[in-house]
């Protein structure tokens, strides 16, 4: 074996070991790498009241209820839903049917008291006209009723 070959195998094996070690480590820390829990996770994991964590999902259609600065809505993953209470300013992308991540804790009645609400958006980008056309032709794959403030030609955040 020449020195070059030896160095080649050394670098190759080193990288292989490194990738294997990292994969094992990431697997071990899987739960800590999760940025948020879904409402279904909450059912199966039984988080105790008072512990701070994040919950993520879609804002359930028709569940948003504003009362002054206080907002009540439900976060759903289509299987389970969790009621959320939040007081403060919502991000521009917060809408019914859109993704959301809330940070806070559960009270003893199972309501999530959020101290922060972040909007999560999906990977689809298109002009408003295209979104409208998709809805009209029935090819829309996002929110089914399309009532999320689009289609009136106004841009969000205005």
């Amino acid at each position: 074996m020449t020195r070059k070959q030896r160095r080649l195998y050394f670098v190759g094996l080193g990288l292989l070991a490194l990738f294997a070690a990292t994969a094992l480590m990431l697997n071990a820390f899987k739960d800590n790498l999760v940025f948020f829990y879904s409402p279904t996770d909450l059912q199966t994991k039984k988080v105790e009241a008072g512990r701070r964590f994040r919950i993520g999902g879609l804002v359930e259609q028709g569940s948003v209820n504003k009362d002054g600065k206080q907002v009540r809505f439900k976060v759903t993953d289509m299987a389970h839903a969790v009621p959320v209470v939040f007081t403060g300013i919502l991000p521009d992308l917060f809408r019914e049917g859109q993704g959301v991540v809330a940070e806070g804790k559960l009270d003893d009645k199972g309501t999530f008291l959020a101290s922060d609400v972040l909007a999560k958006h999906d990977e689809n980008y298109m002009p408003p006209e295209v979104a409208d056309a998709l809805k009209k032709s029935g090819q829309w794959q996002g929110d089914k009723d399309g009532k999320n403030g689009k289609g009136d030609g106004k841009e969000p955040g205005k």
């Binding site: 980008y125 002009p127 408003p128 689009k150």
Partner: peptide, 13 residues
Amino acid sequence: PPDYQQGESVRIM
């Protein structure tokens, strides 16, 4: 064009 959800802010993309 602007984005149907994000409006003009999509230009940062």
